[in-house]
Design a protein around this nucleic acid. Structure first.
Lengths: 207, 207
DNA sequence: GTCTATACGGAGATAGAC
DNA sequence: GTCTATCTCCGTATAGAC
């Protein structure tokens, strides 16, 4: 631990603030001045590090994608050679993400309630011209390709079909968190056992 | 068909324009002036019918919720007494929605590519104070309550669990459309047979 | 690299006539 | 009910000093 006088560099603070705000309030609804205030950074400093708001959005999603892939890598490594566990490792990764290695804001607790950051950004970002678009694509491509590969390794008779089911469980689990957040105040929501359902799906596809 | 001189009332044109733009570009990213241009309506007319942008957003989601519920009602009615078909009727409704009874903009074809309008709005709308919040809640509550009821009618041993699986398939199917839209240019996406998977889930839960 | 101060455009909203 | 014209403020971005 360095002394508190050695502050986190402005670029990191900007990305941490952008992560919190863009994900919790939405990208378009969050002004750069809100990010600046949260990061305690002056406007000109933002434009010294990023091309503008679009560049900041792209950097935010780039970092999030890298961390998400790393979390999945670690979950995969923890599975060893167990092809069944590997096939459902995406749900282990989901349980530990985001781990907040840098920022560490306490409000990140309900981060999970906001669903998939990439799907949410896909709705807000107009077209392929946006500098953040490659990272939206990267997330969907990673999920599609890895789940297909893992389904194949697990011995699925139809890897594409199993991968599709696993992806639906993944997206369904994330959506369930958002819906649970909306319905607070009602009777507590039924927990959604995505990993168990995924294990059952793998079993069906390899029987 | 009425004569073209009898134009659709301004309020309807505003809601049609809001539906197109809010859903395809996002709510916060869409300015009221864009809605006004699309609807060919003057600013003051908007404020004569709605309290402001927030009121327009609420009215848009209210109407969308009503139409969605009607579509599901009709799909249910078409099932008759077949409890198995009724349990998966939400996917029949999904296949016919939105039917565009009023507006009828040709660009509504890729409307499906944008995922669930209520989940998307939930990410963009800050808190329960927003006038549109009740409609976000209504969508999740309708899905939860109806799916549970239908799962129970179908004879599921654990209606809550089956309802959760059906909801995951529903959200998974909508998310799959968004991901498919992102990955265009790649090999064509594998179609996601949500209704068939739902039928299988019902069968497992009633065996 | 980071700051203060400011320019500029667009977005939400209103006034008042028809 | 609908229009034209306008007002204000906020959000994005830049200029120039330290």
């Amino acid at each position: 631990m360095t002394a508190p006088s050695a502050r986190t560099p402005a670029r990191e603070r900007l990305l941490d603030a952008a992560t919190d705000l863009f994900h919790s309030r939405g990208i378009a609804a969050t002004g750069v001045d809100a990010v600046l205030r949260r990061a305690e950074v002056a406007p000109a400093t933002l434009y010294a590090h990023f091309s503008g708001k679009d560049g900041l959005v792209a950097a935010y999603l780039e970092r999030r994608f890298a961390r998400w892939r790393e979390a999945w890598d670690e979950a995969l490594a923890a599975c060893g050679d167990d092809v069944l566990a590997r096939a459902v490792s995406v749900f282990d990764a989901l349980a530990t993400f985001p781990s907040n290695p840098g920022g560490g804001d306490p409000s990140a607790g309900d981060d999970a309630r906001r669903g998939c950051a990439f799907l949410a950004a896909a709705v807000e970002i107009p077209g392929p011209e946006h500098p953040a678009h490659p990272w939206l694509l990267a997330d969907s491509a990673l999920l599609r390709d890895r789940l297909r590969q893992l389904a194949s390794e697990a011995g699925a008779h139809d890897p594409d079909a199993l991968a599709g089911e696993l992806l639906a469980l993944y997206d369904g689990a994330l959506a369930a968190r958002v819906r649970a957040g909306l319905l607070t105040g009602d009777a507590r929501p039924v927990p959604f056992p995505a990993r168990d359902l995924a294990l059952a799906a793998v079993a069906r596809h390899t029987a």
